[in-house]
Amino acid sequence: MKYIGTTIKYLLISAGAIIMILPFVWMISTSFKSGGATMVFPPQFIPDPFVSDNYVTVFERFPMLTYLRNSIIVAIFTTLGTILISTLSGYAFARMQFRFRDQIFLAYLATMMIPAQVIMIPQFILLKNFGWIDTYQGLIVPGIFAVFGTFLMRQAFLGIPKELEEAAFMDGANHLTVCFRVILPLLKPSLATLTIFTFMQSWNNYLWPLIVSSSREMATLPLGLALLQGQRDTDWNLVMAGVVISVIPILAVYLFAQRSFIQGMTMSGMKE
């Protein structure tokens, strides 16, 4: 009797897992199919014939390496920039004393309510005046001022006992030392979260690169993947090969950040 509940639970969870994983399996499967096999009915999960040339073809027919390079540069620098800005501002909002601190923080938070579409055009005009259209700066800089990141880091800083900073001040530290050498190493879980979020967001971002980059030279992967789709017909096997290539870095970042996430969770040296 008691196994019935467990069995039902596992069946439901398995169903959910299959629904989640199916598109990925379909993506990988399609990326190994021949052009004709992508649309057959009933659908094939195991490609027949098994074609691995798609991965070569997609690199030959499109400048995938350029897209990949652009995406990596943009995502890495956006992530680093976001971490830096969020850490500094989060620390300031959590720990430094200045006039109207909390009001400024609330106003900053309130900007989350402004839809991205509203500021898109002004931002574009601003960057045009800077001469940043179709440049890496143009792709990176607007993305690093993340309100969410500041909020996340501020909350994380607030969770660290004040004595730790005070001990560091007595030891001769200044605010920057306290922030980066004493507290930040304790915030690995938050940093991991912020890294995953920011990297994924930047990696998957389509609209802003579309607006700010105009040449193929500056296109990122999502733009490139869009270019793989023709107006009248699409080689889905090639598109899926491109998509698989674009997913791998995200998986790598996720696995890497997850490790420090767990490490951070198990660290504690304070007497409660």
Binding site: P161, E163, L164, E166, A167, A168, F169, M170, D171, G172, A173, N174, V182, P185, L186, M267, S268, G269, M270, K271, E272
Partner: peptide, 30 residues
């Protein structure tokens, strides 16, 4: 005068040791 310039050392109630540093580093940090 800032705390670090007062030639003062302090022991806190909850010790406030740096959790990510070894004992050696805790002692040598200052």
């Amino acid at each position: 005068v800032a705390p670090k310039d007062r030639q003062i050392a302090m022991v806190f109630q909850n010790y406030a040791l740096y959790p990510h540093m070894s004992v050696y580093k805790n002692l040598s940090f200052g």
